[in-house]
């Protein structure tokens, strides 16, 4: 392949490297956890990975559009505490459905606040969402100062045990998102997204509604964060105002492993979801490989560094030739 073809190829398929990485990580995981492909194990794993998968999908949209959102974890926390306090362990299913609809609106509203400041007030995305992350985290703490609350048993067992056609529920949700993303990419909106993230000035000169697109990415991220919050709540079936704290940076890492450049314009949702699965599997490997507790964080981080650096190294070698 010559240089031009390679460039075009990698720009069109940014998630290819993450797919390769996924295969490698899966093989390693299989080595330390032989029953990995057992139905229950897959379901257990995917159930745990799903919140981050959803969050990374939303973050990918923002980053693709040239921004960044570091408040998504706090939105997860808000959603979690609202569900846990407003529905409760003894709450009836109707109330739960109602509140699930409500938290989706909350997530979009939080995203809209981010989007308003970034797209229309032209504030720096990283600073703005850093500030609003405290706003949202503070709100979550106000709603639920001490861990507690819960959701009806039936919902957590639904989340745990639903396996249509013998496959984990998460697979179907992922498939739905991929379908939706595939459709978006076929529309003008998809093109606008890459254009705004790629070179906003040029997009503006070409009459692309730059601000509206930027705004919409944050709303999308807020919505995905709310979905992620619902998934987390069903997974842990209780409330804690710090639930989403560690998720933010993991979601950004997943996006980058998935081939989306932090400068925007290249990448997509599929890669980000693969990235989230990879991050989950790495944790899995570490817990099954009997690594000394003291070393776990180190090993985890080391693998992530290698995963992040590898695509760059490959391109470096290609250039040398």
């Amino acid at each position: 392949m010559n240089k031009h073809q390679w460039q075009t190829f990698t720009l069109h398929n940014p998630y290819l490297f993450s797919l390769l990485l996924l295969v490698i990580i899966t093989l390693v995981n299989l080595f330390v956890q032989p029953d990995m492909f057992h139905r229950d194990t897959i379901n257990n794993n995917m159930r745990v990975f799903l919140p981050l998968i959803l969050l990374a999908a939303g973050e990918a949209v923002v980053i693709l559009g040239g921004g960044i959102d570091i408040s998504v974890g706090s939105i997860v926390s808000i959603v979690n505490v609202i569900l846990a306090t407003q529905v409760g362990l003894q709450g009836n299913p109707q109330k739960m459905y109602l509140m699930m609809g409500f938290v989706l609106l909350v997530g979009m509203a939080a995203g809209a606040i981010n989007g308003f400041f970034v797209a229309y007030m032209r504030l720096q995305p990283i600073i703005t969402t850093y500030a609003t992350s405290f706003l949202y985290a503070g709100l979550a703490l106000f709603i639920l100062p001490n861990p507690g609350g819960g959701i009806p048993q039936s919902f957590s067992s639904f989340y745990r045990d639903t396996t249509p056609l013998g496959l984990p529920l998460a697979f179907f949700i992922i498939a739905l998102i991929l379908l939706a993303w595939g459709f978006v990419q076929q529309t003008r909106y998809g093109r606008y997204l890459s254009a705004v993230g790629g070179k906003a000035d040029a997009a503006y000169e070409t009459a692309v509604p730059v601000s509206a697109i930027q705004f919409s990415t944050y709303v999308a991220a807020g919505l995905m964060a709310a979905l992620s919050g619902i998934a987390v709540t069903m997974l842990v079936s209780s409330g804690n105002s710090t639930t989403g704290d560690q998720l933010t940076l993991s979601s950004i890492t997943a996006v980058v492993i998935g081939g989306t450049t932090l400068s925007g314009g290249v990448g997509g949702v599929a890669g980000a979801m693969i990235g989230a699965v990879i991050l989950g599997l790495i944790k899995n490997i570490i817990s099954f490989a009997n690594i000394d507790t003291w070393w776990q964080t180190f090993v985890n981080a080391a693998i992530i560094v290698v995963a992040l650096a590898a695509p760059g190294v490959i391109n470096l070698f290609r250039r040398k030739r």
Partner: peptide, 10 residues
């Protein structure tokens, strides 16, 4: 006013 990462047709 071209977006570098996009194709000629796009």
């Amino acid at each position: 006013s071209l977006i570098p990462q996009m194709t000629v047709a796009e």
